[in-house]
C-alpha cells in the first residue's frame, strides 16, 4: 500500500493527465454527439451576455454600412411595391343587359395627385387615353361627383375638380326634379357649394339631396350634396341655395371615370342644330 502511494506520487503528473484527459475527451465526445444539449456553450448566460455586448459594439462600428445597405434595400423594395408599378389593365365593370344598351361605362382610377386649397383645383388620376379616357368625361366617386377630365395623356389624366371657378354641373333637387346648376362657392370652402338657377316654385327643404340631372356628363341621380342653407338673396326668377358637398375632396383615393358612350352622338346632333341657327 505504501509502495502504491509512492508510485502514484512519483507518476502523479501522468495519472492527473490521464484523469483530466479522459474527462475532457468524454465531454468532447458526449457534447459533440448531442450538439445542442450543452451548457458549456454560448447559450451559457455569461458568454451569451458577453457576446451580446461585444456584438452591440461591433454593430455600432458598422452602423454606416448597415445604413447604406438598408437604404439600398428600401429602394429595392420600394421598386417592387405595387404602388410604384403602373397598372396596365383597368377594371371595367360593365352591365350586360340585352334590354338596355349600355350608355355609361365606368373606369376605376387611382388619384395620384390632389389639391383642395387652391382657387382652381385639379386632381391627377392614373389612367389616360390608352385606357380609353377622353377629354370631357365625368369623374365620380362612391360618395358623389368629383369633376371632369380636362387633359389626357397616354397614361394619366387631369381632372378639373368641382372645386374650380369654371366648374358648373347641371343638377336637380332629388325630390321634385327641379333643375339648376351647381358650382363652387365664393368663399373657397372645400365642403360648400352653391346651387343656382332653381325656379321659384321649387320649395327646397334643408337637408334635401341635390343630385345630377342627367343633362350633363353624368348619369342621372348621382349625389352632389345636401341643401344646407336657403338663400333667396337674388330675389328674381330663380332661387340660390348653399349646399354641402357629399364628397370629401381632401380624402379622395379612388374615383370612377364615366364614359358616356352617346356623348359624341349627342354633341354632333347639337352641333348641327347650332349650325342651322
Amino acid at each position: 500500500m505504501r509502495n502504491l502511494g509512492i508510485f502514484i506520487r512519483k507518476y502523479s503528473a501522468f495519472f492527473l493527465f490521464l484523469i483530466f484527459e479522459v474527462f475532457s475527451l468524454v465531454i468532447y465526445v458526449k457534447y459533440n454527439s448531442f450538439q445542442k444539449a450543452t451548457f458549456i456553450n454560448s447559450a451559457n448566460q455569461v458568454t451569451g451576455a458577453w457576446y451580446t455586448r461585444t456584438n452591440d459594439f461591433y454593430t455600432y462600428l458598422s452602423l454606416k454600412e448597415t445604413n447604406d445597405s438598408l437604404a439600398r434595400e428600401n429602394v429595392r423594395l420600394r421598386n417592387q411595391l405595387k404602388s410604384s408599378f403602373y397598372v396596365d389593365t383597368v377594371d371595367k365593370h360593365k352591365v350586360k343587359d340585352t334590354v338596355y344598351k349600355q350608355q355609361y361605362e365606368y373606369l376605376v382610377a387611382k388619384v395620384i395627385n390632389n389639391s383642395t386649397n387652391n382657387s382652381n383645383n385639379y386632381l391627377t388620376i392614373n389612367i389616360g387615353s390608352k385606357q380609353g379616357i377622353a377629354k370631357g368625361m365625368g369623374v365620380i366617386c362612391s360618395q358623389g361627383i368629383v369633376g371632369k377630365v380636362v387633359y389626357v395623356s397616354d397614361h394619366f389624366s387631369v381632372v378639373q375638380s368641382l372645386l374650380h371657378k369654371d366648374s358648373q354641373f347641371s343638377a336637380m333637387l332629388a325630390t321634385n326634379k327641379e333643375i339648376g346648376y351647381v358650382e363652387w362657392g365664393d368663399d373657397m370652402d372645400p365642403h360648400k357649394g352653391v346651387m343656382k338657377d332653381v325656379s321659384n316654385n321649387a320649395l327646397p327643404k334643408l337637408g334635401e339631396w341635390v343630385v345630377t340631372s342627367g343633362y350633363s356628363l353624368f348619369p342621372e341621380g348621382i349625389p352632389i350634396g345636401k341643401v344646407s342653407n336657403l338663400r333667396t338673396r337674388t330675389g328674381g326668377y330663380s332661387l340660390n341655395m348653399e349646399i354641402t358637398f357629399a364628397v370629401d375632396f381632401g380624402k379622395l383615393q379612388f374615383v370612377d371615370v364615366v364614359n358616356n358612350k352617346f356623348a359624341n352622338e349627342q354633341a354632333d346632333l347639337e352641333a348641327q342644330r347650332k349650325k342651322n341657327e
Binding site: 474527462f23 475532457s24 465531454i27 468532447y28 465526445v29 459533440n32 456553450n41
Partner: peptide, 11 residues
C-alpha cells in the same frame, strides 16, 4: 465555452 466546442480545448 466561447468557441462552442465543449471539451476540445480542455483536452
Amino acid at each position: 465555452s466561447f468557441y462552442d466546442t465543449p471539451g476540445l480545448h480542455a483536452a
